[in-house]
């Protein structure tokens, strides 16, 4: 997979009157899984949406390689950047195969008109998330975890060099959280740019090559999990007292109590 750097420079975003992101400078390089963490309202989702080109910045810009994401043609952008939103909306009981086939829309492919490459991408995506054999099941009759994985398969089927996933493991059981994070890490280590938003800090530290800690629309810290997720930072950013211990393969972060505000 040939991949370019996805970068934000001096990125500011306003939603209505509220300044949601301010002065962000960050680069996401191929080959690394970046996990974005931060309290509710930190601007994580807005960052992902802006990186995906779905929100216009009020200042600065986002580039993929040399191309400004905002100025890219819709289909070019859709082929370059796959975005998995948080809500997991599926309005109609489409069969899983048709749902995953939506990932081929940027190539002008439809479920009834797939190229051999499209067909292979769908098969591979279903296998990656462990949903082979679910092709004909209506998506609305899946469990929350199965639906989350089917939607991830939809994003994977695009074969975009960039994948932005907003809370991809929130609805999953522990086993499937691990499986999905392994897929995301595998994708990154195969040369993709992968950015995921998560709330489980221990799990994030176990899989992330890099952690981006956000609060109040700014990046507070970025780097290796052990450098970013310290007890002092968790206290300052999340307002919690937490025990942080390092062990093989990651950190164990146990929140002990919420600190009084102020």
């Amino acid at each position: 997979m040939t991949s370019l750097v996805l970068a934000a420079r001096d990125l500011g975003v306003r939603l209505g009157r509220r300044e949601v992101l301010r002065g962000l400078d960050v680069a996401f390089r191929p080959g690394r899984l970046t996990i974005v963490v931060g309290p509710n309202g930190a601007g994580k989702t807005t960052l992902l949406r802006t990186l995906a080109g779905l929100v216009s910045p009020s200042s600065g810009n986002v580039t993929h390689g040399d191309a400004p994401v905002q100025a890219m043609a819709r289909s070019d952008r859709a082929r370059a950047i796959a975005y998995l939103p948080q809500n997991g909306e599926v309005s109609w009981p489409l069969p899983v195969r048709a749902l995953v086939a939506l990932g081929r829309l940027p190539y002008g492919e439809a479920p009834e008109r797939l190229t051999p490459a499209g067909r292979a991408a769908i098969e591979q995506a279903l296998a990656q998330v462990g949903l082979l054999g679910f092709e004909d099941r209506p998506a609305t009759e899946l469990s929350g975890g199965e639906r989350g994985r089917a939607l991830l398969a939809r994003a994977l089927a695009t074969k975009a060099p960039v994948l932005l996933a907003d809370e991809p493991v929130a609805a999953l059981d522990p086993r499937h959280q691990l499986l999905v994070l392994e897929v995301l890490r595998g994708l990154a280590h195969a040369g993709g740019v992968v950015v995921a938003v998560m709330h489980d800090l221990s799990l994030a530290s176990r899989f992330a090559d890099r952690i981006l800690l956000m609060t109040g629309g700014r990046i507070v810290a970025e780097g290796a999990p052990a450098d970013v997720l310290t007890a002092e930072r968790l206290e300052a950013v999340f307002g919690i007292e937490a025990a942080v211990s390092s062990e093989a393969g990651g950190l164990t972060i146990t929140p002990r109590r919420a600190l009084p505000v102020g």
Binding site: L54, P85, E89, P106
Partner: peptide, 20 residues
């Protein structure tokens, strides 16, 4: 047709798939 099909996933996901 194709845009309505993509809207099954909601407006944001449809937009990310290149739908206007």
């Amino acid at each position: 047709g194709p845009a309505l099909r993509a809207l099954t996933l909601g407006e944001e996901a449809a937009a990310s798939l290149g739908v206007n």
